[in-house]
Design a protein around this nucleic acid. Structure first.
Lengths: 337, 337
DNA sequence: TTGTAGGCGTTATCAT
DNA sequence: ATGATAACGCCTACAA
């Protein structure tokens, strides 16, 4: 049986109130008794019961982290960084992987809310649907605790968004390719999420602004759950149908790796004959040969800001509802500009 | 303010004891009152307060998951699978990333134990040190809750180990190469963990059993924190020093990818001139060209068994202290046997 | 079958 | 500066 505050108070010949005071750093306790109590706590390695504390304080100092699939490279990194940030602010992380189905997300959110977490972080833009109905669970949840969105945006009371400006990052990357003289750019994407749409629209912006005729014919949508191999094959197919392209802009690094694989198989040389740009600047960039040029969405900055905002909100401060950061292109071997 | 059991009991005109009974599925409740209460619970979306429940039951139904770095591909996958398994058994997951330093691990373990988790899962063999002193924190922890080890083994009361037989898997892979006529095998490793040692010893076993002279000269230790690029360079260096090899056996998939990169840079063709085998059969296998042959350590099986054992232990059953599974070789493009 | 009441380990508001 | 004591929301003998 672990010791309780009563055991400590007895050993120290004081009341539990006094012990509680030193536990919570009250200043109105004599230095000598404080030291005595601290010594005993140390000696017996006493730690307060978190559940009991939570009952009194109405806070477990625990944040629920929801993400579709924490084994996804990008999401895993985000979860890791969030957990680190939360920990250094004295909060624990309750992790829950929901999958990509909306009904399940709703159920898991309720489940985790019943654990009385202090707030919820939704990791990834796949938590935002396109209809009012699909997003109703977020509105419901926000009635109970603050909801923090990473890489998505949703304007509603008590929900806070922190994200990378995917649209303008993508525009920038596309224009960099255009400036390098590559005008036939294949845009490759698969997911259909909030941020995926932003990226695509950023691509449109660049191509329209630069008046590239018929660029839309070079937009390739890959099946959501395809393997790298399948995507590479899909690109080869696309080419076989008569499309020509000397640049590939991919909506994430995995897709970009598939593009590099396609080039290997078809004997196209990178970056002389074909330039490839990925998105996320993940560890995958160094896995392929040559190494992958990629857009960095500054995940560290995002997670840091998200937790900062959260801590502020929890302490009752007024905080920005939306924080937007620009990304930037990290040039490596798959481009020569 | 969320509803309490008192609110529900009032609305249903019964005592809280009766509400509590239907909440906990007691059979001694009249069908009609049970239905009435259930309806009210449904209507008001009442969910019991987890902290209060934990106080009475002395269980939060929460498992602490410790891992060094949940953004590591292999560990991320393990954490994901564990969380899924736990969830389907009605347990939540408190995630804590400790880094690779032993002192920190000890501190984080205590921190998480003070949250009164029901058990602890240590993910990855890096939690086991080589000295008694280094492992003392595990003994201490096991005095409070069951400790489950994934991919490591430690014989002590109340600690349970679930792991892949890395040694024999590696032996098997090496002998497969030998049978294919490749006798100059470079063994590539970096970490210094429990399982890393097992793998190396498996390699020794194979080479000794087949009486390969001087095989030890082809064991290459890469710096722990090197990038893929650096490891590829290290292999090239090694070759430049006069070592020849036509097979590479890597202790994990990342190292194997570095080996493939080395081959690309040096113009050695895979698998004709050089065969490469990785370890873990992770998603990385499909990222390189050709796709990577790798040893599958059956992570799904391991995590499933670990959680099964854990649930058994928590319900007071006698459970095996150690569960060992064999791995097997998944052949892809980097080998031609 | 149902209700009463004590206990779980804290925090916080009163007094003293 | 310190001590009683009432919450906090739930579970569970024990009674009825």
């Amino acid at each position: 049986m672990p010791l309780t505050i009563y055991d400590i108070s007895k050993k120290a010949n004081v009341s539990i109130a006094t012990v509680s005071r030193v536990l919570n750093g009250s200043d109105s306790v004599k230095e000598s008794t404080k030291k005595k109590i601290l010594d005993i706590i140390e000696e017996y390695e006493y730690t307060p019961n978190a559940s009991a504390r939570a009952m009194s304080l109405r806070s477990l100092r625990t944040i629920g982290i929801l993400c579709a699939d924490s084994s996804d490279v990008f999401l895993a990194k985000a979860v890791y960084l969030l957990q680190q940030e939360l920990q250094s602010n004295g909060y624990e992380s309750l992790l829950c992987c929901t999958g990509y189905n909306f009904d399940k997300k709703k159920n898991y959110m309720n489940l985790i809310l019943s654990k009385k977490v202090d707030a919820l972080i939704l990791v990834g833009s796949n938590f935002i649907g396109s209809t009012e109905e699909e997003n109703s669970y977020i509105r419901d949840g926000s009635a109970k605790v603050p909801i923090m969105l990473l890489n998505a945006s949703f304007d509603y009371p008590n929900v806070y968004s922190t994200l990378c400006d995917d649209a303008s990052s993508m525009t920038e990357a596309a224009e960099e390719m255009l400036r390098a003289g590559i005008r036939d750019i294949l845009y490759l994407y698969s997911a259909d999420s909030y941020s995926s749409k932003k990226k695509l629209s950023g691509f449109h912006t660049a191509m329209k602004r630069n008046e590239i005729p018929g660029y839309e014919d070079l937009i390739l949508h890959a099946e959501e759950s395809s393997s790298v191999e399948e995507i590479a094959a899909a690109i080869a197919d696309f080419e076989a149908k008569g499309h020509t392209f000397h640049g590939i802009l991919a909506a994430d690094d995995t897709l970009a790796i598939a593009a590099v694989k396609y080039a290997h198989k078809k004997g196209r040389s990178i970056p002389d004959d074909l330039s490839v740009i990925g998105y996320n600047n993940s560890m995958l960039t160094e896995f392929c040969t040559p190494e992958l040029t990629s857009i960095d969405s500054h995940l560290e900055t995002l997670t840091h800001q998200l937790v900062t905002t959260l801590i502020g909100v929890l302490s009752g401060q007024e905080m920005p509802k939306k924080s937007l950061f620009s990304g930037n292109l990290v040039k490596r071997g798959t481009t020569n500009f």
